[in-house]
Amino acid sequence: MEEKGKTVKENRQHGSINLPTELSWQGPMAENWRLFRQKFEIYLIASDNEGKSPRVKTALLLNAIGERCIKIYNTFVFEKAEHGNDINKVTQKFEDHFNPEKNETYERYRFFTRMQKDGESYEDFVVVLRDLSSTCNFGVLTESLIKDRLVCGITDTTVKDRLLRTKDLTLDKAINICRISQETRMQLEKITLAHTPDNAHSSNSSDYNINKFNEKQNKLTKSGFTGQLEKKYKENFNYDKKLCKRCGYNHPMRKCPAYGKRCVRCNGYNHFSSQCRNHCVHEIIIQSFLK
């Protein structure tokens, strides 16, 4: 009775620990098998099954790995019949099946030609490089070559320039520089966009007023004003002048909608960003932050 109560208690303790999902057949099978094996080993430890007999652990493996792999297991030939229940012998058979002998030259080609993809973070890129290097037999040069591939493979030329100018660059230093650069860029985007909605609202409001004025102006023009009325209209509304250099619109004299407004591009006053002459200020600020 006491033994039964103990078993129930253990089941409750490990009730939330599930077997790993079946081996995936999508993508490279060597990587799928390596991931499944790692998850299964974690499961054995977490569920307190690591100390169980090889026969029990083999049964757990076959129960988790899926029907398709059980059919593969049935084709394995063991030196001794009992080896079919030995977890080490069984996993080695699966290892040989999913991981045939590697072509080292080709594996290194994959590593040295890997470039950072669009939208791929620096951290994800390093993870991929580590995974590719695992089949290249680089030995003690692994960390150094991953660092070199990181520098050569990233797409941001500004960050690449900084990495190349860093003395005694290591993989950890390179990853840290890339991470800081990525965080800085995100912060800069938030800073530059912080006041955009308010300025956009002001601009839209001014655009609305100017459009209403221009509509009124067009209606009056089409209605056929003549003589003194037309002359007075043109004088009051600056009808025959060029577009304003501060707002880009035609408006009554001393009624510029840009007056008192701050430019989003250069932070100067009394002109809209569309008419700003300091076109390169924003780009220069960003470059100075990244250097």
Rank of each mutant, 00 (worst) to 15 (best):
L163F: 08
P20M: 10
D124R: 05
I70V: 09
K232C: 10
R254T: 04
N85D: 14
T226W: 02
N88Y: 10
F213W: 07
D240N: 13
P197V: 06
S133M: 00
N85S: 08
E189Y: 05
E82N: 11
E230R: 15
H279Y: 11
H97W: 09
Q187P: 04
K212I: 13
D148H: 07
K167L: 06
K52H: 14
F237E: 08
V127A: 15
E50Q: 15
Q26P: 01
E10Q: 06
L164H: 03
S274N: 08
G227Y: 02
M253F: 15
L19P: 09
E101F: 12
M1G: 07
R12L: 14
Q92W: 09
P28A: 03
K93M: 10
D96Q: 05
G153D: 02
V77T: 06
S16F: 04
E230K: 15
K291N: 02
L220N: 05
C247V: 09
Q13R: 13
L163S: 07
G153W: 09
C244D: 02
K245A: 14
L163T: 00
E143T: 11
R55H: 13
T166K: 12
S53K: 05
N74C: 06
G5S: 06
L188I: 13
D131E: 14
G248M: 01
R165M: 09
D124L: 06
K234E: 06
K234P: 02
R254Q: 11
Q26S: 13
H201A: 13
V151Y: 07
N209Y: 08
E104I: 11
C256P: 03
G66T: 04
A194M: 10
Q217P: 01
Q38Y: 08
E235G: 05
K212Q: 15
Y43R: 09
V140R: 14
E10A: 11
R185K: 15
D207Q: 13
E183C: 01
L61F: 14
D161F: 10
L164N: 04
K219A: 13
H271Y: 07
S223H: 05
T221Q: 07
F76T: 06
V128I: 09
F237K: 01
V264E: 11
H251F: 01
K160F: 01
